[in-house]
Design a binder for these strands. Sequence first.
DNA 1: CCAAAAGTGTTCACGCTACACCCATGC
DNA 2: GCATGGGTGTAGCGTGAACACTTTTGG
Lengths: 230, 230
Amino acid sequence: MTYSNKDKFYLAVDCVIFGFDNDQLKLLLYKRDFEPEIGKWSLMGGFLKTNETLDEAASRILARITGLRDIYLEQLSAFSELNRDPADRVISIGYYALINSKEYSAEMLKQYGAKWFTFDEIPKLIFDHTEIVNRAMKRLKRKAKTQPIGFELLPSQFTITQLRNLYEAIYQRELDPANFRRKFIGMKLLDRLPIKDMNHSRKGAFLYAFNKNKYEAHTSSGFAFDLNGI
Amino acid sequence: MTYSNKDKFYLAVDCVIFGFDNDQLKLLLYKRDFEPEIGKWSLMGGFLKTNETLDEAASRILARITGLRDIYLEQLSAFSELNRDPADRVISIGYYALINSKEYSAEMLKQYGAKWFTFDEIPKLIFDHTEIVNRAMKRLKRKAKTQPIGFELLPSQFTITQLRNLYEAIYQRELDPANFRRKFIGMKLLDRLPIKDMNHSRKGAFLYAFNKNKYEAHTSSGFAFDLNGI
DNA sequence: CCAAAAGTGTTCACGCTACACCCATGC
DNA sequence: GCATGGGTGTAGCGTGAACACTTTTGG
C-alpha cells in the first residue's frame, strides 16, 4: 500500500445534542454502555466505520439513540489530545445537533439511559466531553447570530415570544420584547399564520412559521441574516 | 485491546498557508513530493504520527517547508469523503496558517518547490484541496472581523494604509481610508511609533505596532474587537 | 373593570458613510 | 507651487435601546 508506513488511528464521533423545552435550552446525555467508563455520563458517540463519511457516522449515531433522521448537524472540530481516552489513542470529531425536542422518541431515550439536562445541571462527563460541550455552546451562540438555525430548535409553528425565549436561552440574557419582535418581523422571513396560540395569554399570540424559500430568495439578493444587534 | 474490533484510519493534516505581500493576499502551495499525484500542486500536508496531537502535526509540517515556528495556526475542519484520496482511505484535518511573508526561509521554499500564488493564479490542486482552500478563505474572512488576527500577516511595524490594504485584500473591496483609520485608532490597540515610513508618500506615514497587552486588558474589561461595520 | 400578555409608537444616542478639506514634503 | 498620499472635520442617516403606550380578552 502507498501509505503503509504511516500510523493508523481510531476515529470517534461525539455529538452534542441541543434541545429547547419549557423555555430552556437543554443537552441530551446518556450513560455510556461500553468500557471504559461504562455507566458514566457521556456525549452520544461511536466509532467511524470504513464505508462512511464523518457526517454519515454522526447521523447514524444520532439516529441510534433518538430515532430521528434529517437533523441539523454540524461538525465542530477534531479533538486529539494524546490521553483524552485513557484506554487507547482515539481522535474524536465533535459534532453538534439541534433538535426540536417534541419529536424525539421517548422510548429510545429510555432504552439508552439518555436524559435531558439544563446547563446548570450538567454532570461531570467522561474524557474531554465537557470541553466539547463548551465548544458547541460557543459555536451555537456564534452561528445563531448569522444563520437562521434557531428554528431547528422550535416546532414548525411558534409565537414571537417563544422565538424570543429561545434566543434569551441561547444568549442567557433578556431581550426587549418590542425590539425583538420588530427586528424579526422586519426580516420578512416569517409567515404569519391565521392562527392564534391562546395558551399563554388572554389576547392570544399569532403563530408564525419560518419560510425557507423567502430566506433563500432574500439571501441571494444580498440580504444577510444578522442578529448581532440584539 | 478495548476497541480492537473498530476500524482504523490514516489521518492527514493539510495546511492552507496565507501570506500578505505587495498589497496582495497570497497562498503558499508546493509540488507534492510523494505518490500518488507526485509533482502536482498541493497544500502542505503530512500524516499524523502516534506520539503527537493534530496541532503538533500541523506545526511540524509547517516548519518542515517554511522553516518557521510559532506561527498562527488554527484548525478548520475534518474532510472525510470516501474517495478524496484515490490511493487509500485518508481522513484529512484542514488547518490554516497566517504568516508574515517577509520572514519565511526562501531556500526552504525553493528546496521544496513551494511558491506563492495570488488568488486569481491558484492552479488546479489535488484531491479536495481547492475545497479546503475555500473553507480557509471563508474562515479567515469571518475570523478577521472579530479577532485581531490580521496583524499576523503584517510585519510588526506597519502604517495604517498597509493595514487597510490588508483588510481590503481579505474582503476584496475598497474601504474608506478616513473611516478605517478612525475605526482602528479608536480601538486603542495600536501604539504609534515615533517613526515615519517615507517610502510611499512625501509626507510620510507613522508606523504603528499592535499592542497585545492593551488588547487583552481591554478585552477583559468588556471590549470586543469588531470590524463588522467596515 | 382588572390583570396580563400581545403588540405599536416614539424618542434618543451612537456609529457608520460619504465626502470635503487641510497637511507635509519632494520635485 | 503643485501633485501626492497622510490625516482631520463634519453633516446625515440608519439602527438599536429604552420605555411609554394601546389592544385584547378571560375572569
